[in-house]
Computed example of a mutant assay.
Amino acid sequence: MIQLKHIDSIHDNWTKPFVEKLNFRIIENKYLLAPEDILDGGVFYKLLSDDLSLAVIDYVAKKEIEFIKVSANSDFWYLIFDLSDGCNNHILNNSNYEVGNESNYNFGFIDGTAERKVIPNIGTRTYSFRIVIRKSYFEELIRPYDLGNFNTRIQENIEEYHHYYGYVDSTSKIILNKIINKKFGDSNYELVVQASAYKLLGVFLKNLVRYNSFTLKHAKADLDAIINTKKHIIEHIWEPFMGVEFLASEAGMSQTKFKSHFKDFFGLSPAIFYKIEKLKLAKELLETKKYDNIKELSSDLNFGKSPSFAHLFKEYFGIDPHDIVNY
């Protein structure tokens, strides 16, 4: 297995070991492209200010590889939004997280001092949108708001574990879905990605102010129960929505407690989560040519009339399903 140790930073000095040890190429001081025998793709990176930068990691791994971010005295936070097709392994403090679009975890808030190992899945697309923000700037942004006990809880969690993993909220997913199909070098790629970084940061800060963190304020047993109901929804996605009453019973909770906990963790009601997962499945079925009839797909997935399905699809993904069929 190939191993690459590197640091991370707001500026671009983190790229040096990629170039020197694995022969990555830097193009236009913003693209870090991998040798084709290792990865198909690479990284787009951009310094937005002395306190803020972004990186879009977009590749398909062809060989087993470990990216090891070594511990350093780094004064920044990572925000990681991971919509990878497969499940990549993130290892921090001897904890192993399966991270990706189909995983229980696809969002990370990580202390820059933490050592982290990332092992990408071979043969599937890795797509991770990362924002690096200086801690002093982050504190400046949240200073006007009184976060009360929540600020204490998340700070204690970060101090002990140096990381927090959760689920990408629905608003951020909409932002990401509008850019995930864009390729390096596309027209306006840089501009759209920069705008998306500011939007994602804004949504994160808004949620930080408005909501408490589920995994910090609830018992692990409740967390496990909510994750299991999520798995049940996915496993029965072809069927009509099973209802909150059934899901709450499966979780061993009252309906009120279940709905509150589910939204705390996933940022969505159970019904909206179910609908979005069906839309994601519909997109996959169209892209893989398993369906070429929108009306039939809409019926099979219990969306009702095809015009309503097409409207929902375009609203969420930013593309008409007919365009995928006709591509």
Rank of each mutant, 00 (worst) to 15 (best):
Glu20Tyr: 04
Glu20Lys: 07
Thr256Cys: 07
Tyr59Asn: 08
Gly86Pro: 02
Lys220Gln: 12
Asn101Arg: 13
Phe266Ile: 02
Asn89Leu: 12
Val60Trp: 04
His236Glu: 08
Asn177Arg: 03
Leu48Gly: 07
Val70His: 06
Val99Pro: 00
Ile142Leu: 10
Asn73Tyr: 06
Glu98Met: 09
Tyr164Gln: 07
Asn151Met: 11
Asn23Gln: 10
Glu287His: 08
Arg143Asp: 14
Ile174Thr: 10
Lys30Arg: 14
Phe265Asn: 02
Arg143Asn: 13
Glu20Asp: 13
Phe265Lys: 02
Pro120Glu: 08
Gly318Ile: 05
Asp224Gln: 04
Ser254Ala: 12
Leu83Met: 08
Phe76Tyr: 13
Asn207His: 13
Gly185Thr: 07
Asn23Ala: 11
Met242Ala: 12
Asn96Gln: 12
Glu190Met: 00
Leu83Ile: 08
Phe262Gly: 00
Phe184His: 02
Gly252Ile: 14
Ile27Lys: 07
Leu48Glu: 10
His6Ala: 09
Thr124Trp: 03
Lys206Ser: 15
Tyr161Arg: 12
Lys217Cys: 05
Ala55Pro: 03
Glu36Arg: 14
Ala197Cys: 12
Glu284Thr: 08
Asp111His: 06
Leu47Thr: 10
Ala248Arg: 03
Val99Gly: 03
Lys283Gly: 03
Lys289Tyr: 11
Asp292Tyr: 05
Ser128Cys: 06
Asp146Gly: 09
Tyr167Leu: 02
His218Trp: 06
Lys199Ile: 04
Lys206Ala: 15
Lys263Cys: 01
His11Leu: 11
Phe81Pro: 00
Ser53Arg: 06
Ile158Ala: 14
Tyr97Cys: 04
Thr171Asn: 08
Val118Leu: 15
Asn212Cys: 03
Thr288Asn: 14
Lys182Gly: 00
Gly41Trp: 01
Asp320Glu: 10
Lys183Gln: 07
Ser254Ile: 04
Phe76Ser: 02
Leu285Gln: 07
Val118Thr: 08
Phe309Gln: 06
Ser74Arg: 12
Ser254Glu: 12
Tyr165Pro: 01
Lys69Gln: 10
Glu287Asn: 13
